[in-house]
């Protein structure tokens, strides 16, 4: 396990180095202020972080966490419900399948009119986009539980709630985590979009504001902050997986060693 972690850290350092080299090469080849030198951008990022960037990052983080929490609670509950209940599946799944591929971001103006220009519409548009993935993965996760495990659980005398606690939720947990990992990238992209209206806080606002002022070094410091935010969220998901799905980690180790 520790070996694996140190290998992962080494991988991160390697990835960052390559990224910096590519960035520097791009800066040299384009010869334009729109791609500033990495050194300047990183220096600016560090100096702006405490007073300027942190409040923006915090505002964005609160919106993303809000959207993720709502999506998980509502999405998992609905996913479990239609996964367990065949009738509900017949009634609800077709609606989800029709709505799933619709680009929800196009409804941003509708969200703004219905839920106001503040945080509510920003959080809800992100929720609307990521919740479908969570509903569908949870439902499929329930479907994939081997029938034998249900027999096993029932023969031990479990009631309905114990079935959820000991069997269904632990079984779908790794799937939820995977869908969360995919959703986080999407949610940051959507948030960036939604922070371009009616707010003075949020990393999306900061980036676009710097762009308006043709301050590309600051803009890149903002992009770094947004990437950093994404990285933290990714790590948070990794931590949750390690904490609650230890068995999955062991299984992954096992296949890696084969």
């Amino acid at each position: 396990m520790n070996k694996h972690i140190s290998k992962l850290k080494l991988g991160t350092v390697y990835g960052l180095l390559i990224l910096l080299v590519l960035w520097q090469l791009l800066h040299w080849s384009i010869q334009s202020t729109v791609i500033p030198e990495p050194y300047l951008a990183i220096k600016r990022f560090i100096s702006l972080l405490p007073g300027t960037l942190l409040p923006h990052m915090l505002a964005s983080l609160i919106r993303i966490v809000g959207a993720v929490v709502i999506s998980i609670i509502a999405g998992v509950a609905l996913g479990l419900f239609i996964g367990v209940n065949d009738k509900a599946d017949t009634l609800i799944s077709p609606i989800i399948y029709v709505l799933y591929p619709v680009p929800k971001i196009a409804f941003l103006p509708v969200f703004m009119i219905l839920f106001g220009l503040g945080n509510t519409s920003k959080i809800l548009i992100v929720t609307a986009i990521i919740i479908f993935q969570i509903i569908v993965t949870t439902r499929d996760g329930v479907r994939e539980i081997p029938k034998g495990l249900f027999y096993s659980a029932r023969s031990l005398g479990m009631n309905k709630w114990e079935l959820y606690r000991h069997l269904i939720i632990p079984a779908v947990m790794p799937k939820i985590i995977t869908s969360l990992r995919i959703s986080i990238g999407t949610s940051i992209a959507v948030l960036f979009f939604s922070e371009n209206y009616a707010t003075r806080y949020g990393i999306g606002y900061f980036i676009m504001n710097c762009w308006t002022f043709v301050n590309y070094v600051d803009m890149f410091a903002g992009i770094l902050a947004l990437s950093f935010l994404g990285y933290i969220l990714f790590k948070l998901v990794d931590y949750t997986e390690a904490k609650f799905c230890r068995w999955v980690m062991i299984a992954k180790e096992g296949t890696r060693n084969v």
């Binding site: 034998g148 027999y151 659980a153 069997l167």
Partner: peptide, 19 residues
């Protein structure tokens, strides 16, 4: 339904992989 004093061992053991 299920009886309290009956135990069942399934063919594929029925163990929970997450426990």
């Amino acid at each position: 339904g299920i009886r309290k004093d009956t135990a069942l061992i399934l063919q594929d053991y029925g163990l929970f992989p997450w426990k």
